[in-house]
Design a protein around this nucleic acid. Structure first.
Lengths: 351, 351
DNA sequence: CTGTTAGCGCTTTCAC
DNA sequence: GTGAAAGCGCTAACAG
């Protein structure tokens, strides 16, 4: 009855290994070997089987594969041990997935360690070797850490870096944002929200030695220099992500400059920054920072903060698990799905 | 060797139906019946089995369940038949999932129909009854459509509304954004980016009869009225999402008002809006619209558009599939994961 | 190098 | 009302 209606089917085929085996004139086991690039098959046989697979665009049934392998998969998440609200959120979201994980017989362990000490981190990673199918790690970019990651990879463990990358290692995937682009976004927001006023812009970071902080600052300065000539960026304050220190440094800066119109907080220490702003009665300063936490949420609602650049921690946690699982199964990764986007959060689109 | 390291395991248990059966003193089949609320089990037996399940917080193995049921699941996506770039993106993303779908033996069919004619849409939906495990539909909010949705639900089909909701129906889930909040976000952006100038703000919508457009306008006006008293909103232009018409209406408006500082484009017809702006040489007008398409991407890069409010079409496509699958399997839905966020996209965080 | 076979943990008849 | 048993499509021993 439905006129004007046109239908179009995606997906099809429900062939099985057995069908492929028959077409290629071999046994189940041989097809399985070819499918998983296992040794011990004559090149010619490999070719015949491959052809049969191609010809039918055969897709093995994941559920059957999962069931047949019997043992559960083990993943480890290596995360900073300090009381970092962002990391705690990631852990909380992993907790929310526990039923989902259990239904798939996936074991996820959280391993807290001092990720800021390269030798401790490297040792923690080395200790994991052989015990896990996959490891997600919030990594410091350091030669010792890189070596530890490469060792894990060589041992057959799938490795993804989380939030902070080690691009020089052979990790299989990075789950996190492009921090240069995040810094540029922050710059564009500060510049635009200042609304044409001229003046100075302050930057508070944890440390310029941290790769992600350095990259954000780089992107921020890029945009400032090229697009907002009326704004001049002051030297970076290093607050070590601590409230007290950030507040003091900033208070001193406010004392010296009356014409600060914008402020970019690159890392944590947000409460300190907010305190400095309110004590100096600089409510009109445009304040842009990172991440949606209980605190930044409140500051956004109060109008103290104007925007937060955010990487969705729930998405990061789930993406890390899905990527490790896909890697372990040999499935392709849905790149678009696993990409972590740079979210701009203002009061009205608070998640 | 790794000092300073503390570990913590999530998930556990790898019990099977058989274990539960033994503990409850019944057979496999009975546990299965209880697990799926199937009839034909004495209340007392049900209780005993339930207790055993609870006691062990037993989670059936999805892979085994999936394998055992044999037949593939069928889902239908009912979408507008016109050449709408946003809808085409959703379809493209479904296409990208085809290997993923095939590996899970999921069949997804696209059904194109005139979703703007309630009787045609209702008929299309009725025609699906009984043939599908799940249906995702871009729905018009109309009594006939509501009835058709409810009929599907009664027939045991899982139904999710996509992009546009029918809240009064008994659909199982809505995959899409909160359009009032989206309008508020647009309002806040226009207001803030105007940067303190006073003046008028124009709104171009497809039609105020469309639920999502009406909601966005509502949210937009809310913010304008309460937070930007220096800006006055002009009456809504109805461009029917057509380029030509939008351009003409807007050109006439520019002719009558010299002090327009902001522009909110609620729906499509974006090219027409951009033309009107450039022909009237109103480059300083703050222009905020919806969705990231090839066109809006270009306009953002050129600086013609200042921001786009976006709902990630890839995420919507995948969320719809995952939600239908979870509903069909009786699994819980990861609400946080499936929630569609309101993305603010500016030039520097273009995805 | 290749094939045979016994499960993996559920669902689903079909008996009782 | 309840139980027994035959698969679902793979993987992994083990035999040849």
């Amino acid at each position: 009855m439905a006129q004007e209606t046109h239908s179009d089917t995606l997906t099809a085929a429900a062939l099985t290994l057995k069908d492929i085996a028959r077409q290629a004139g071999v046994s189940l086991a041989t097809v399985d070997r070819v499918l998983h690039n296992r040794p011990g098959v004559r090149p010619d046989t490999v070719r015949r089987v491959r052809e049969a697979i191609e010809r039918n665009s055969f897709q093995p049934h994941v559920a059957a594969a999962e069931l047949a392998r019997g043992r559960a998969r083990r993943f480890a998440f290596v995360m900073p041990s300090g009381p970092n609200p962002f990391m705690q959120q990631i852990q909380a979201y992993l907790g929310e997935m526990s039923a989902w994980l259990a239904a798939r017989r996936l074991n996820v362990e959280m391993i807290a360690t001092d990720v800021f000490d390269p030798s401790v981190l490297a040792a923690s990673l080395e200790a994991l070797s052989g015990d896990y199918d996959g490891v997600a790690v919030v990594a410091l970019d350091h030669p010792g850490v890189r070596a530890a990651i490469n060792d894990l990879v060589d041992a057959g463990t799938k490795v993804v870096t989380l939030v902070s990358d080690v691009p020089s290692s052979r990790r299989h995937h990075y789950v996190g944002i492009d921090n240069i682009a995040a810094g540029r976004t922050a710059g564009a927001l500060v510049g635009r929200l200042v609304g044409g006023r001229a003046g100075k812009v302050a930057i508070v970071a944890g440390s310029q030695g941290l790769r992600d902080h350095a990259e954000r600052i780089f992107g921020f300065n890029q945009v400032m220099a090229s697009e907002f000539p009326d704004l001049s960026v002051l030297p970076v304050l290093e607050g070590r992500d601590e409230d007290e220190r950030s507040e003091q440094l900033l208070a001193r800066l406010f004392g010296r400059h009356a014409d600060i119109v914008g402020l970019y907080n690159v890392g944590a220490g947000t409460q300190g920054v907010a305190n400095a702003l309110s004590k100096a009665a600089r409510e009109t300063v445009v304040f842009v920072g990172h991440d949606v936490t209980a605190l930044t949420r409140r500051l956004l609602l109060q109008g103290v903060m104007d925007a937060a650049i955010s990487q969705n921690p729930g998405h990061e946690a789930r993406a890390a698990v899905r990527v490790l699982l896909a890697l372990a199964r040999g499935e392709p990764i849905l790149r678009e799905q696993e990409k972590i986007r740079i979210d701009i959060v203002m009061r009205d689109n608070l998640p």
